[in-house]
């Protein structure tokens, strides 16, 4: 068996160079040339400064911004430490968190009634979910409108314009990108400060 060891070492090294160096270098080269924006993280710049990535959710807590889902990444939306709560369905901590968040949500959004959309109070898998369901965005419209001193209809219209339908008409779920929606809000209806 040991006479096979040195051939094994040789092929390991050759294939490591091929699949571990040349192949990623080739993909990097082509990706950087053709899909430069995507390959570098779909970053969004405002006035020449990077404010985030359109694919990565960030923390929002002010009333004039739409707020994303609870995040278990680091201390919340840590994009260098992704992760989920990993709470099982019968975990006391899951129920405690949802109870607390639900009370907070209803207090901050007194105009909202009825059951809260499923995604709004559940933590995402990555902790970096950039999206909300359209219903979860709609639930926050009155609060955002009040904080910015504009009519709810104006905000709702922006939400609808920011809603992405299912890809190719049937894949995935309809969604609203929270960061892009908030950027659109800021540029259309700057908050009174």
């Amino acid at each position: 068996m040991l006479q096979q060891f040195w051939p094994a070492v040789r092929i390991t090294l050759v294939l490591t160079v091929l699949t571990g160096m040349l192949y990623p270098a080739l993909v990097t080269g082509i990706a950087q040339a053709i899909f430069h924006q995507q390959a570098n993280g779909s970053l969004i710049e405002v006035n020449g400064k990077v404010v985030g990535s359109e694919l990565i959710g960030q923390k929002f807590s002010k009333p004039e911004y739409f707020q994303g889902r609870p995040s278990a990444a680091g201390d919340g939306y840590d994009a260098a430490n992704s992760g989920a709560s990993n709470f099982g369905p019968t975990n006391q901590k899951l129920v405690d968190r949802i109870k607390a968040d639900s009370e907070k949500f209803r207090k901050e959004n007194p105009d909202f009634s009825g059951p809260i959309p499923a995604d709004l109070l559940t933590a995402s898998a990555s902790g970096l979910d950039p999206d909300l369901s359209p219903a979860s965005a709609a639930a926050q419209v009155p609060r955002v409108a009040k904080a910015r001193g504009i009519a709810p209809a104006q905000v709702q219209e922006l939400v609808e314009r920011s809603t992405q339908a299912r890809q190719l008409g049937f894949l995935g779920e309809p969604r609203v990108n929270v960061l892009k929606l908030n950027l659109a809000l800021d540029s259309t209806y700057p908050a009174k400060r």
């Binding site: 889902r69 369905p89 499923a118 995604d119 559940t122 933590a123 999206d131």
Partner: peptide, 15 residues
């Protein structure tokens, strides 16, 4: 306009 079901540990775009 929303996925319903058990969304803990799931992403909105996948539902």
């Amino acid at each position: 306009t929303q996925p319903g079901g058990n969304m803990e540990g799931k992403e909105v775009r996948f539902g």
